[in-house]
């Protein structure tokens, strides 16, 4: 097996055109165009999304959802939640797709509020919703910590966090009452510090979290 692994990697070499491209950049470094491209892409998505968004009944629902501050009601959670008589400081990004992947709405992601957890001094903390909960021992590679709340518009919010302080990740789910596409579910998140959303299916904690919140679509291939 070890020989096979070595042979596999040995066969992977940098393509010649990439070698030339990097050689050129090393001889004549240019400013990166990536930020401009990203800005253009975001602008295009926002333009598209706003048009689609305005044409749907979701606008009213989502306007309520993101009319921050939102005063919360009693949460329903699978873990201790701390004080909920507070304002929601988090906001979400999400693309709600109907059948055929058409984008129906876009909800912008506010800076500095999108990631619901962070590592401090080697401990993993849940930090969304103005909380600061040490969840290091409440989740693992196999199990997820779930923080749930319902806002005053009736939208149910689920934060799923799993893994270890070295390698953690999260998912956010919203269940919007009355939204008939996707069964009312909006999903967003990052699979982890060292992986991406397409690798959720590899993470046992993600499966565990989804089962806990009752999300209907399992993370399978």
């Amino acid at each position: 097996m070890e020989r096979n692994i070595r042979e596999y990697f040995e066969n992977e070499t940098m393509p010649e055109d990439t070698v030339r491209r990097i050689e050129d950049s090393l001889r004549k470094p240019r400013p990166s165009t990536a930020p401009l491209l990203r800005m253009a892409a975001v602008f295009a998505v926002v333009l598209l999304a706003v048009g689609l968004f305005l044409s749907t009944d979701l606008m009213e629902v989502c306007a309520d959802v993101f009319d921050i501050p939102i005063h919360t009601q009693k949460p329903e959670a699978t873990e201790p939640l701390g004080q909920m008589e507070t304002e929601i400081y988090v906001s979400y990004g999400g693309i709600v797709g109907g059948e055929g992947e058409k984008i129906d709405a876009y909800i912008s992601l506010a800076p500095n509020t999108g990631i619901p957890a962070e590592v401090i001094d080697g401990r993993l903390y849940f930090t969304a919703n103005a909380e600061h909960i040490d969840i290091t021992d409440l989740c693992s590679e196999e199990t997820a910590y779930v923080y749930a709340l319902q806002d005053n518009t009736g939208v149910q919010h689920y934060f799923i966090i799993g893994g270890t302080p070295e390698d953690w990740g999260y998912q956010i789910f919203l269940k919007v009452p009355g939204m008939d596409i996707c069964g009312g579910w909006i999903c967003g998140g990052s699979a982890g510090a060292t992986t991406r959303a397409s690798d959720w299916k590899y993470r046992q904690w993600a499966h565990d979290g989804q089962a806990k919140v009752g999300h209907p679509w399992p993370l399978e291939d």
Binding site: G114, I186, G188, A193, T195, A197, S198, K201
Partner: peptide
């Protein structure tokens, strides 16, 4: 660099899952 790339936000619906690479 890989970590930074993979740490980027991904926002998507979950059904169907994203297409294979």
């Amino acid at each position: 660099a890989c970590r930074n790339l993979l740490r980027c936000h991904w926002w998507q619906r979950t059904a169907p899952l994203d297409s294979a690479s």
